[in-house]
Design a protein around this nucleic acid. Sequence first.
DNA 1: GAGTTTGAAACT
DNA 2: CAGTTTCAAACTC
Length: 788
Amino acid sequence: MDTPERKQIATTSVSKFEDSPVFNYINNLSPIQPVKSIHTTQTFNSLSFASLPSVFTSPHVSSYKESRFLRRHSVADLSKPDFASENGNKVDTNGGVTGSVSQLQENSSAPDGNSDSLSNPTKLPSVHPLSTKEEPQAMKSDSARPDCDQKLPDSVTESGEDPALIEPYVHNKSGNGSAEAEANKQVVSLTEEREATGYDWESLITEGSDLLIFSSPNGSEAIRLVQKPLDLVTGFTSSTLSQIMENDNTNLSKMRIADPIESSGGQQEIEFLSSQAGEARELKDMDRAIDSLSFPNSSNSMSREITDDEVARYITDDCKPVSNLYRGMRRRCLDFEAAVSRRKNLEDGSTSGSVSTHPEEKMPSVDKQLVPYKTGGVASRCILTGIGLHLNALATASKDAKTLNQEKFSSEKQLNLPNSSASCHSPSTGLDPRLTSVVTERDMDPSENGVHNEEDAVRASAYVLAEDFNQNSPKKKRRRLEHAGETESSCKRCNCKKSKCLKLYCECFAAGVYCIEPCSCQDCFNKPIHEDTVLATRKQIESRNPLAFAPKVIRNSDSLPEPGDESNKTPASARHKRGCNCKKSSCLKKYCECYQGGVGCSISCRCEGCKNAFGRKDGSSLLGLETEQEEEEPETNQASAMDDKALHGPEIPNNEEQNPGSAIPSTPLQHCRQLVPLPFSSRSKPLRSSFLNVGSSSGFYTGNKLEKPNILQSQPDPGKNTLPGMEDEMPDILCGNCSPGAGVKTGSPNSKRISPPQSDFGLSPLPRTGRKLILQSIPSFPSLTPQH
DNA sequence: GAGTTTGAAACT
DNA sequence: CAGTTTCAAACTC
């Protein structure tokens, strides 16, 4: 019935919800709608405001503003009544879903073949007592999710891991494989165009918001929202956020999807969307998982107004299996950051008297400087915090539409598959939304004192969950990581045996992330459970070497020229922070950190017989300004003897440049690094808050200053010196935003040179900003791109 | 998968 | 600061 109309509407008025078509659409949906639209709008506003107070009460507010999606989204919502109606609908659905949480859990437990996931959770308790204690149920729910995803045919799930496989699968799946494939292509092209054009997130968001309206199938549900408590509001935001994110990624897809749910082809379309919005979905899932963990009971409060159909819809839309690995990665990264930031705050106590008691309160300061990881809830954390490389990757994603798209596709495809299959039946998905909302509130509301503990618990649980998910198929995970080498977030896995993962020997630790299941480490202390130990050790190491956790490779992204920026003067260069000391590898193997990081050797390097394909320390580095040139013929300029090597070099570098992440075949780190673009403009100001947030991921590292004169001579200690307080509290993070950039910028790049250019261009060109220095996190993990 | 090589990190 | 040892990744077989 509605389908045809809906479609028309969607297609015609996709861009603007304000258009009458939207209203028509709503009206079509349900007779109640007219009332709804009104109510909803108002309600929404009222609700939003109501919720806001809590949020804003805390200093977080600022952070929120900075925060990306959520904040913006919320704003958009407020401004747009139609939007609200839809949101309301979603919220309701969420609530309905939550209502059926128990069922979902059971379903999840169902043996669709994910018995492993279930078993893992059980295992977790022993491993992570905290998480288990706090919210065993929640964990179950989380675990259930994966199951839900897994419900899809085994082949599908597996394919999900491998993007390449996934795509085909998706196509096959959809009745109109070719049609969808085309649609995907279009979407991709669009996204790329956007990035190329310098699409702003905001614009994307707005578009997304528009789309959102269409996407929501049931206008009737909106009314329910009004009735629902404030909690829902928060949920709404989260849900909306997720939607927005999705929308951003897939405007076109949404157009199609607009009606999909009920239309016969709805599922296929849905899948398509999900694939595109994979990233957003993952975030959502994370949030949900967290919510479920932290507030399993919250669902009870929800009134079950949503019908089964609604739930089913919700599931189809939202329940997108996220690659477990991906999830885990983010979480661990985020968690780690959060912990660090938290810890720093506590330690620094000076900022706020009772840090430990009210961690969140302190957060604001941190958030402001860093990224508001907490503000946005888990999902937001992931993105904003960006702490880990992974996060950076996300940020990068925004910048690099291509990478993002790829990641999204891969990730989403995985997710979608499950959904597409009837498997989504499991209500488990339903739970998430609401939970998410709850979480959001929690995060948003700083007033809550107990938050810290809860957060910790959540973190632990999340960590556990991530591990659990990962455990499902370690092999698969590895595969993903490998394949995905692209996804930086894919985080690293270590194999430490004696360091307990508390030394820089440990890649995970060095990267600022907790070890996760895929790690083969022994006696590992780099886990949320041992947060204190980790932080203490970290601090100790930092005291020894402030730059210890700073990105080893510092990049200056040429790709984005800022008008008027000094960047023009400064050569784009990326180089290893400390330089390498290779003697036998000729800087042609991954033993060489410079090579591993995809950067050329610089003056700071003490290597012997340098043949670094990315740039030799001899002279190639000088060429650095023009990375491209160097890349093309780094060695040509230099000694002829090197030519042979150079030949090899060029090839590699080129690859990297083109696909930074891929450039270095085996190392995922590059991806991460690439992804990690920090927003430091020459002036050290982040182009956009969003970027900053993202950049924060590197935050850990970013905080550090560039020691090496070669690269950044400029300003010695910009970060720490300038902002001691900041440093203390959030040296890493803060520095990330401020110091690094400043340092880099300030440091007259010109003065020092940098060697070879890196492939940064291709890697992460920030669309808008001119040149940006990007700190590459060492970690090779796959990042956003993901990969997974 | 086991063993070797390598160079960073840690230690003295 | 230099030299040595330890460590884990990278690499090879």
